[in-house]
Design a protein around this nucleic acid. Structure first.
Lengths: 210, 210
DNA sequence: CACGCGATTGAACGGCGGGTCAAGCTCGGG
DNA sequence: CCCGAGCTTGACCCGCCGTTCAATCGCGTG
């Protein structure tokens, strides 16, 4: 073969997914055109459909791809923290839309909401979402379990149940925040999450740190 | 004038909104065509745009219209309950997708998710959503306040904060349920909501009732 | 009973955008 | 240095809707 070794093809694939994720984040699924993605990726529209069977397939892949990235990032970040409380705190911080300046742009949460809409009628997407969500909840449950066994946390409720509660609370609050609800600021979301966690997991909140 | 008295016009308006809401619930915003709405309403496509300036405007109105209906229904239902605990319980029941057989079809939650997506980029929709949500949280906060003053509940946390916590938990859990997450059944969602509420509001859960 | 006006129809228009394709490019191997 | 397989292009096709509009209807009024 010529240029086209497997490596280059894989890169293009990824580049296009990345471009697609960026366009979707910015314009929304409904307003995303193939030509937008092509422009964002710096290639011609025709090439997009050379690498993907259809626009629909591409969009679906892009959504799970982007959310996967987010998971990998949080996973990498929390792994290095020493205590379960720090890991939990960091996980919450990373979950609050717009709390941390880094990786600024419109939030990954926008993509999640798009996933939900699509998953309503697309069984494959629903399955992918469930896997992603399960993994996310497991990450939280692991932190809880490690905190319980280290004595940082104490609760007579099952760790998976606690993880479900906290994860769901985060989801619900993040919606308001990402939609700019005037009564739910990022700071308030963070505080609420930590207070509920402290309450459920039986630990004391340190007195207001930056 | 002829047939067209203000009453008839108002009815048509409402009929079309209702038809639109049904179609959106079934097919999703993205797959909703004007002709679908016309068919559902039993009129010609042309008439739709006789009553509404554009498809977009119609869809936006339909979304808030439908969610308004849901609010009115829960509000009417809970008003007649005697204790704050019963009102809370009923509110949660009505919030769990697919828990009660009545008003069966695909859930209002599907519409909420569509609202969220739209609100991400449509400031008017975002404003409407905030108003709807605020009203919903206020309903919950009122129940909490009445329960506290009647001595059924006890908590040293602000009622609005508690309402935010419970409402957000409901939102987050409802997403999983409406998307058929295999680990979050309607029954589990109900139980989790009631347990958290009992924990936060300091009341005892009665031993498993139907 | 005829007139008129709002309600209603459905055919036609227009453009937007997904998908196709034939032609050119590029680079590594022979 | 030339060949060819894959990569890349961008013009084109075509179906799908949102929207427009001229024509028709039908009821209440004079």
């Amino acid at each position: 073969m010529a240029t086209g070794n497997a490596k280059a093809t894989k890169d293009r694939h990824r580049e296009i997914l990345d471009a697609a994720a960026r366009v979707i984040t910015e314009r929304g699924l409904a307003e995303t055109r193939i030509s937008d993605i092509a422009e964002q990726a710096g290639v011609s529209p025709g090439l997009i459909l050379y690498y993907f069977d259809s626009k629909d397939r591409l969009l679906a892949e892009a959504l799970t791809f982007a959310n996967d990235q987010f998971y990998l990032r949080t996973s990498r970040e929390t792994r290095r923290m020493a205590t379960a409380r720090d890991r939990l705190r960091r996980l919450v911080e990373l979950s609050v839309p717009g709390l941390l300046p880094e990786y600024g742009r419109l939030d990954e949460w926008a993509l999640w909401i798009e996933v939900w809409v699509r998953a309503l009628r697309d069984a494959d997407m629903a399955k992918d979402r469930e896997i992603l969500d399960e993994r996310w909840r497991a990450q939280l449950a692991d932190i809880i379990r490690s905190g319980v066994s280290s004595g940082e946390f104490s609760s007579d409720t099952d760790a998976d149940e606690l993880a479900l509660r906290i994860a769901s609370l985060i989801d619900g609050l993040a919606i308001q925040v990402v939609l700019n609800d005037s009564t739910v600021t990022p700071e308030r979301m963070f505080r609420t999450c930590m207070e509920v966690a402290a309450h459920e997991l039986g630990f004391e909140l340190e007195p207001a740190s930056a």
